[in-house]
Nucleic acid binder design. Structure first.
Lengths: 245, 245
DNA sequence: TATAATTAGTGTATTTTTTACAATATCCAC
DNA sequence: GTGGATATTGTAAAAAATACACTAATTATA
C-alpha cells in the first residue's frame, strides 16, 4: 500500500481567492506567475500541498506568504479535479477563499507587492487554468455567506460608516439596497457599536462611525444570522466610491 | 514538471454519503470494507480517483457501482486533507453526497446488497478514518440545502402524502413542524400536483397523494427557493413511521 | 353493525417582518 | 451665507409567520 501514490498519485494544490473591500469596491488579490505554464500572467495565488502538510495548512501558508497576515478568515470552497485542467499533468486543486481588511495588507513591506495587485472583481478577466471557475465558485460562496454571517467584520476597518457597510453588502450581493430599510435592519441586530465619533475631513455632513460588537459577533457565529434583503425598487444602481479618509 | 507527482503526489479518493428516506427515517448507505485498513468494518463507500478520470466522474462511478442508479443528485461537499488521516499514507479525499429514492435502490440485484446496508442516520456510530466528520459535513450540507431546494423531489417516491413530505423535512432538519403551517406553506408554492388519488390499504383515513411538478421544480432550481421554517412550539417530537405502501 | 382506534384534513386571528417612500440636517468650499 | 454633497430619520401598508383544535374518513374488532 506504500505504492498507492505511484498508482493513484496526483499533484495536489491549493488556490486562494483573497477578497478585500476598498474604495467602495470588492477586490481580489492576483499574483504574477513566475513559472510555466502561463508565466507572467496574472493568476490566483496558489501552491502545492507539501507531502506531510495538512491541506488547510497549505492554504494558510499561501495566504500568509501573500499578505503577511495571520488569523484571517479562511474557508474551503470547492475542489477542482478535471483530469486535464492543468496542461502539464494531473493536478487537483482545492479552492479556498479568505476575507481580509485591505488596510492591514497595505502596511506590508513591498516585497510581494511588486508581483501582486488588487483588482476589482468586475474587472477580472482572462485568468489562466480554470481560475475563472474558481473565482466564480468563491464569489458565489461569499454571496451565500453574507446572508449567514456578518462578514463585514472581516472586511471593514475597525471603524466604518453605515454607508460603507451598505456598499459592502451591495458589492457582494450585486444589488442596490434601500438606505432606511438597511439601517433599520442592521441596527436592530445590536451587532454594531455606535462610537459617538464622526468622519473627519469630508466635504459634506460627516457620518457617524461604528464598530462591530465582538461579543455579538461570536453569538451570531454560533446561533446563526439571517440577513435576507430584497433589492430596492429604485432602478439607480449607483456604485459610488466611499473611501472615508 | 513531469516529476510533479513524485514530489507532491498524494493518493486522491472520493467518499460518498448516499442519503435515502424510508419508513419515516433518513438513512445512509454503508459498505463493509473488503481490505485493510479497517477490513470488515462498515464505512462510507469510496474509491481512488483514476489518473485520467475527472474527479466528479470518480464520484459518479462509486455511486453507480453501489446503487446501479444513473442520473442521480450528486454534489461535492468538502475535501478532507489532514496529513495523517489515513494510516497507510497520504490520502486526500473529496466528499460527495447524493440523494436517491430508496425504493429504486431496492429493485437492484442482490450482488452489492450483501455487503451494503442502510442505516438510520441517528444510529450510525464508529465509522473508520475521519468518516464521521465526513458524514457530519454532508448532513450539515443537506440541512442547508433543504432550505434552498425542494430536495423531496430527489428523495421521495413519485407519489407521496403531505405527511410523508413533512416527516422528510422533520428528519433532515431535526425539528418538529406544525402540520397546518407546513401544508399551507408548501402548497402555496405550487410545487405539488394533487393527483386526486388516495392511499390504499391503510387502517385509517387514507391520505391524498401528491407528486412534484417537474416544471416548477426546474424553476425553483434557477430562481431560488426559500423554505424557512421554525420549529413548532409543541414539545412532542414524535417520529412516527409512515411507510404508506 | 356499532364503536374504537388511527391518521387526514382544514381556517382564523394575532403578531411579526418587510416594504415603499421623501424631507430635513450637517458639514465644507467657495 | 449659499450651494453642493452626503447623513439621518419615521410611518403606514402589505405580506408572512405563527399559534392553535376540531371534524372527517377509513379499518379493525367487539
Amino acid at each position: 500500500m506504500a505504492k498507492l501514490q505511484e498508482f493513484f498519485g496526483a499533484a495536489c494544490t491549493v488556490d486562494n481567492v483573497i477578497f478585500g473591500f476598498d474604495e467602495g469596491d470588492l477586490k481580489i488579490l492576483l499574483i504574477k506567475r513566475g513559472e510555466e505554464p502561463f508565466s507572467d500572467e496574472w493568476a490566483l495565488p496558489g501552491h502545492f500541498v507539501y507531502p506531510s502538510e495538512d491541506l488547510e495548512n497549505a492554504a494558510v501558508r499561501v495566504l500568509e506568504e501573500m499578505t503577511g497576515l495571520h488569523n484571517v478568515f479562511l474557508e474551503q470552497v470547492h475542489t477542482f479535479g478535471e483530469a486535464n485542467r492543468h496542461p502539464f499533468g494531473r493536478v487537483i486543486t482545492v479552492a479556498y477563499f479568505s476575507l481580509i481588511k485591505i488596510a492591514d495588507y497595505k502596511l506590508q513591506p513591498a516585497g510581494i507587492a511588486k508581483k501582486a495587485k488588487w483588482v476589482p472583481i468586475s474587472e477580472v478577466t482572462n485568468l489562466p487554468f480554470d481560475h475563472s471557475d474558481i473565482l466564480e465558485a468563491c464569489f458565489e460562496m461569499l454571496k451565500r455567506l453574507v446572508r449567514t454571517r456578518p462578514v463585514g467584520f472581516e472586511l471593514l476597518p475597525p471603524k466604518f460608516t453605515l454607508t460603507e457597510l451598505q456598499h459592502l453588502y451591495e458589492s457582494i450581493l450585486e444589488v442596490s439596497l434601500d438606505k432606511r430599510n438597511f439601517r433599520k435592519k442592521i441596527l436592530s441586530m445590536n451587532l454594531l457599536i455606535d462610537l459617538n465619533e464622526s468622519q473627519e475631513g469630508v466635504a459634506h455632513r460627516p457620518a457617524r462611525l461604528f464598530s462591530f460588537d465582538k461579543g455579538k459577533y461570536q453569538e451570531f457565529l454560533s446561533d446563526g444570522f439571517n440577513f435576507e434583503v430584497k433589492e430596492s425598487k429604485s432602478k439607480s444602481r449607483m456604485r459610488v466610491s466611499t473611501s472615508a479618509s
